[in-house]
Design a protein around this nucleic acid. Structure first.
Lengths: 351, 351
DNA sequence: CTGAAAGCGCTTACAG
DNA sequence: CTGAAAGCGCTTACAG
């Protein structure tokens, strides 16, 4: 290998990458001193620091994450995602990236397809690659599984209801309250027969945001005296299944006056099916989503939704994770207030 | 640190991770032998191999990527993406992941926001983390910049027209031909005044897929005797700008009979704006996209598009990258045939 | 404040 | 076929 590299260097005339040793020699200091400057560690004189920094710049030195990882950190954070299609994730990602912008940390995403066993494999792969920490978005792991991960690596969970998790941080909006706001809004607009369209999960998970929203829906319906109108349908997260379920709901003998969908992604499909059936929104059926993703604003959609600022959630998650890597052990549970954004899809014309 | 870890181990009773040394001791062989089994390297007897594998399983041994990276490979591949919102990327990703499923390689994504300087930073971060190779999707880098990267790390480019790149592989569909198919289809349906809606780039890049599609559009229009109808508009990749441009185009004094959009993402917005303006599709204006993403199928959209199978592109890219890491130096340029999928958005009723 | 030295967990040429 | 040993580029206690 060494010889191979030497040949390559000669053949292509590539300058070998500067190492900490090169920098130390250039600056006339020890390797340990360079390492301290690199980590901004305690106990280096300003003069030495300046000299080392000059050499680093001059030699375009960049530390190798693997080598750092052998003793310390890799300065790499993992983000585990199950589906990149949901536009809400894009907001979260932007927030997390912005939080890390001026740091040495780099966020890398792993996408696990729908399979749970692949999610496990991905987590292992990230631990093997010595991520300094992991962020999960809406994980399909059980509480015990999350704790097992958190025991091995600093962990932050976005969008999963775990308000008293002791070993990791969580970042959420108040999903029960968000659902309450939606139902109250629809009731105020005069809708009574309000259905909830949920995500179907293999094992029902009380802690998932979708279930939390359903809980909020049910309790608010009850509080408003609409118990007999409670109606929950669910489908898996595929375009096909969502459409089939929406069509069945809308063509049933007594279709709902309003449909509250657990996420915009579903609501946009429902909107599409409703129009396909020749229904007018919101006159024949009102539709509300959750997440206030950018597609809600399109004039064609004009979808009422709950804003929970993915940007803020992502930013908070990245911050909390870095704090935890830096040694915090007391868990923090950030909860953001949901905010209703009313658009045409649920606004009844004044009569 | 070592003491800290010891304390942690005692306190939490976490078993320390098995290392190659532990495995070697357990199997009663040398560390070098274990390493060979790990890499399936030449020169180990079946007996020794079986013994080592038994110990690895028993101890749940997983090699540490950093340590491997210090001398050899990290078995990590980087995928550089500028925008996760485009649903086409999700197909590519699924394809790449499936190609790597039974290998030791793990794909990790880096998302660079719209900024080019961030793309550079991301590439550096990936090289610092010793990715064994990088895949780019539709990079905004110049040919020289790509070559500079390919000099340092095995590289495969998806969706960028570089048919004679000497130092890296490319994976594409034939974009000029795809555009030709679209224009011929529209002409056959009786449309004459066919506009092309392109991506606006800061520096026009002849090699981008969008420009390639424009080239195909222009030449086919000319070949069909429709030169005087050639009309190209462009916008940046934001919902707002796409909408504004679409609205201007559709409300102009002499609006096009058909709009061919460089990608579905744009076409879906144009569709939305057309409906908002009360136009009927395809009677008032036909709309065609590119990529045949899952949203095209929605009944509400029924968008005609070019299928170039993101799955296949992703799979090919991952395969080519692994081959290249394994030593292939002769470049391969995979080109896939585009295929038109006609839907209601461009189908004229028979008269 | 500064540096010499050990060591992280692997791979690799080399010797046997 | 098998193994001892050097070494990858860092960080960290420790000594000065």
């Amino acid at each position: 290998l060494d010889r191979q590299r030497d040949n390559l260097l000669k053949a292509k005339a590539i300058k070998p990458r500067a190492t900490i040793k090169t920098v130390a020699e250039d600056a006339g200091v020890s390797v340990a001193a360079v390492s301290k400057v690199l980590r901004d560690a305690y106990g280096v004189s300003p003069e030495l620091k300046a000299r080392v920094q000059a050499s680093m710049t001059k030699l375009r030195y960049r530390p190798l994450a693997s080598a750092r990882g052998m003793r310390g950190r890799t300065y790499t954070l993992g983000l585990v995602l199950s589906d990149i299609r949901n536009p809400f994730f894009s907001d979260i990602l932007a927030g997390a990236n912005s939080a890390l912008e001026r740091t040495q940390y780099q966020l890398l995403l792993g996408i696990s397809a729908s399979d749970t066993s692949l999610e496990d494999a991905l987590i292992d792969a990230m631990i093997d690659r010595q991520m300094d920490g992991i962020i999960f978005i809406g994980p399909r792991l059980t509480k015990a599984e999350i704790s097992a991960v958190a025991e091995r690596i600093p962990t932050v969970i976005i969008a999963h209801y775990l308000p008293d998790a002791p070993d990791y941080d969580t970042v959420n909006d108040d999903d029960q309250h968000g659902a309450e706001i939606v139902v109250r809004h629809l009731a105020e607009q005069g809708f009574r027969n309000i259905a909830f369209f949920n995500l179907r999960m293999v094992d029902e998970d009380r802690l998932s945001v979708s279930t939390q929203r359903e809980i909020g829906y049910r309790s608010t319906m009850t509080n408003l005296g609409l118990t007999r109108h409670i109606h929950v349908v669910s489908s898996e997260q595929t375009v096909r299944d969502i459409q089939t379920t929406a069509r069945a709901l809308l063509t049933s003998p007594r279709p709902p006056e309003a449909i509250f969908c657990w996420t915009d992604y579903y609501a946009l499909e429902v909107l599409s099916v409703a129009r396909e059936l020749g229904l007018s929104v919101p006159d024949d059926v009102a539709i509300v989503g959750y997440d206030n993703t950018s597609f809600c604003e399109l004039a064609q959609n004009a979808l009422t939704s709950i804003d929970q600022s993915g940007q803020v959630l992502g930013l908070q998650a990245a911050r909390l994770l870095v704090e935890r890597i830096d040694g915090r052990t007391k868990p923090e549970h950030f909860v953001m207030a949901p905010r209703l954004v009313v658009r045409a899809s649920s606004r009844r014309n004044p009569r």
